Simulated scan of single mutants.
Amino acid sequence: MKTNMKSLVAAVSLSVGGVYGWGATGHQAVGYVAMQFLSPKALSFVQTSLGSTYSQSLGPAATWADEVKSSAAYAWSSELHWVDAEDNPPTSCSVSESRDCANGKCILTAIANYTTRVVDTGLSATQRQEALKFLDHFIGDIGQPLHVEAIKTGGNDISVKCSGSTSNLHSVWDSGLINKLISANYSNSVTTWANTLATRIKTGQYASLAASWISCSSTTAAATRRSMEEDVSGLLRPRAITPLKCPLIWAQDSNKLDCSFVFSYTTGTDLCTSSYYTNAVPIIETQIAKQGFRLAAWLNVLFDGATNLP
């Protein structure tokens, strides 16, 4: 029987072995990638809003939403970090906002809410900064396959091994695989990793793919086709929190990985020292690059009126 992530909210603090999308390193990498693709007005807002506290960068600010969610003041935000896809991986994968976010409290509606707030000049600078930090984090979260999955509490209740230690599948995807990756390949430097991913987007192996990452179109249903500009303008024009196509497409994109790879391990295998790790690395790097690029495009549309990206 499935156990969804909402059950964790009423349990122990989520900060203790709980639900973290990518962990600090992954989230920071998303933010640092995004910084390299911001248009002038978006960049100016980010730098001014975040200020010296966050080195004027989405990188350091990306972990704030995880840091505060276990506090009493922000306990309400815990359930906004995911959407519980009630599907059946690896047999079938799908995300439906009406089915999986029926109470209106999930990462899909959170992105819509903070999109309107970050550009609302009637709010204080502090409130708009908070909205920016939530967007920074949630657009990263939605790229983590187990943040768009309900089964076994998004993998938190699946015991696995990573580098000889007992862990859970969610934690391995949050940080276990990433920590090994940046130690082995990037001298434990998140900025080195982010710069490498950004270079791949600009001139490397991701260059021919990047445009498709921000097209917000479904490969299975023409009715879901909508540009990022249309998504944002449609949301802001009535100043109402309405369903957005882009975050839903991103969630569905990540959710497909639950069927194609995430649950494909052999029980008892060490996921961080086997072929599972080798095969997971290109998936993780692509997801981090995607979400950084998408975050930049989203902010560019908000502040400059267009994605201004290839």
Rank of each mutant, 00 (worst) to 15 (best):
K2M: 01
K2F: 02
K2I: 07
N4F: 05
M5Q: 11
S13K: 02
L14M: 09
V16A: 09
G23Q: 11
Q28R: 15
G31F: 10
G31P: 11
A34G: 07
Q36D: 15
Q36S: 15
L38R: 06
S39R: 10
F45A: 08
V46R: 08
V46M: 07
T48L: 03
S49I: 09
S49D: 05
L50A: 13
L50F: 05
G51I: 07
S55P: 00
S55R: 07
L58Y: 13
A62M: 12
W64D: 09
W64Q: 11
W76K: 13
W76I: 07
L80P: 10
H81A: 14
V83I: 14
V83D: 12
D84T: 01
A85P: 04
D87M: 02
N88A: 12
S92K: 15
V95Q: 10
S98W: 03
A102V: 03
G104W: 05
K105Q: 14
K105A: 09
C106W: 08
I107S: 13
A112M: 04
N113L: 15
T115K: 11
T115A: 04
V119M: 03
V119T: 14
A125Y: 03
R128M: 06
A131S: 11
L135V: 08
F138T: 08
F138I: 05
I139Q: 09
D141E: 08
I142L: 03
I142D: 05
G143E: 11
H147D: 13
E149M: 06
T153C: 00
G155V: 10
D157W: 00
I158V: 08
S159R: 00
S163H: 03
G164C: 02
T166Y: 00
S167L: 00
L177D: 02
K180R: 15
K180M: 08
N185G: 01
N188K: 11
T191D: 10
W193I: 04
A194S: 10
T196C: 06
L197V: 05
R200I: 08
K202M: 12
A207I: 04
S215Y: 05
C216I: 07
T219N: 14
T219S: 12
E229N: 03
E230G: 01
E230R: 01
V232G: 11
V232C: 05
L235A: 05
L235F: 10
L235W: 04
R239G: 13
I241V: 15
T242W: 00
L244P: 00
I249P: 03
W250P: 03
S254L: 08
F263L: 13
Y265W: 10
T269M: 05
T269N: 02
D270Q: 07
C272N: 13
T273K: 14
S274E: 02
A280N: 00
V281W: 01
P282F: 01
T286P: 06
I288V: 14
K290C: 09
A296S: 13
W298Y: 05
N300M: 09
V301D: 09
F303R: 13
D304F: 09
A306Q: 06
A306W: 03
P310Y: 05
P310N: 08
P310A: 03
P310L: 03
